[in-house]
Nucleic acid binder design. Structure first.
Lengths: 177, 177
DNA sequence: TTCGTCATGTAATGGGTTACATGATTAC
DNA sequence: GTAATCATGTAACCCATTACATGACGAA
């Protein structure tokens, strides 16, 4: 999830870790920032897999030591990113991952775009079905539990409508990015 | 988080693991079920801390082996649950935990109820401030990233309004549960 | 007798967090 | 010179997941 988000940002242009972190929050959907304890190990593992090139920007004239490390996508990394996004499978519909796939929808053919949006919508509708089934949650309805359930239902229904709007927009427009 | 949810359900009445799992989903807010790989180890750790009594319901007459294990709250467990809920601190405002605290709001004095609801609202408003600050997310606005951001903002604003309604309801009514 | 679902658990793993440790650069 | 913020990283841990393994009970 984090790897995909990082690849997506580096696909745009090379960056160093600190900047990456700042740009990551909108991509992750929620407004939380990722911690360095996740970020740097993740960058290292991407480098080990050959998808990212690490540029330690040797001591600039007059500087004793490197300060910044620039990370850059390799051709293999770029290739992997496109694939991962275009061939997105079931886990692209899940909560954490969906936001990341969504953020990069503009870099993928409309067909894949529709597949991701519709997959997510299907996933949410499954949940709604389960949540509406009274057999699923036995026991009495405490006011607060019931209220929580109601709010969760409404939020999900709202997301479904949002997706429907986007899907319809994709279908009429010709390759509207 | 999971421990609190379990304690809350057991506070109502003793249950065995399988039933607990089913009743857990609405409490956790999202519609996902917890896995047994989380549930049973968590129950064991609660037992080790002396909050839960494990009743292996010895071989019923005619049965070779136990099938069900019943878990029951000890007095210490009950005590701990009330405290944890009533004295709920900052992490009760966070995403995962809030739903659990919310579900059990009926078991706590109105004062604590208001503190939890208002704490959550404050937390969300902080996020909104950060998200609205253009300095926070530099770089150009890709259509999809912008759309994602917009939707996240709207959802959060909606939750704030929801909380405000509940808070106001708590303030006018006298101990409305 | 076989199938579905009830029921309990372990082992390995995953994907993140916090807390810590360090140092450079910039603005006042 | 000193404070803020830019910048990079490690170690320990947390809390969940999946995959696996086992077995009882009831209904067709």
């Amino acid at each position: 999830m984090l790897d995909l988000a990082i690849l997506g940002l580096l696909d745009e242009r090379p960056m160093h870790g600190y900047e990456l972190r700042k740009r990551l929050s909108p991509v992750l959907g929620a407004f939380r920032a990722v911690s360095y304890g996740s970020l740097y190990p993740c960058l290292r593992s991407l480098a080990e897999r050959g998808w990212v090139r690490v540029d330690e920007a040797g001591p600039a004239p007059g500087r004793a030591r490197r300060t910044r490390v620039t990370y850059e996508l390799t051709p293999a990394g770029r290739e992997h990113f496109r694939r991962a996004l275009t061939e997105a499978g079931p886990d692209a519909w899940e909560d954490g991952t969906f936001a990341v796939h969504f953020a990069f929808l503009g870099r993928v053919p409309r067909e894949a775009r529709l597949r991701i949006l519709e997959g997510r919508r299907r996933r949410l509708e499954q949940r709604l079905d389960a949540a509406r089934d009274p057999a699923g949650h036995p026991g009495r309805a405490d006011t607060w539990t019931a209220e929580l359930h109601r709010h969760a239902l409404e939020s999900t229904e709202r997301e479904v409508r949002w997706l429907t709007g986007l899907i319809d927009g994709q279908r009429v427009g010709q390759d509207h990015r």
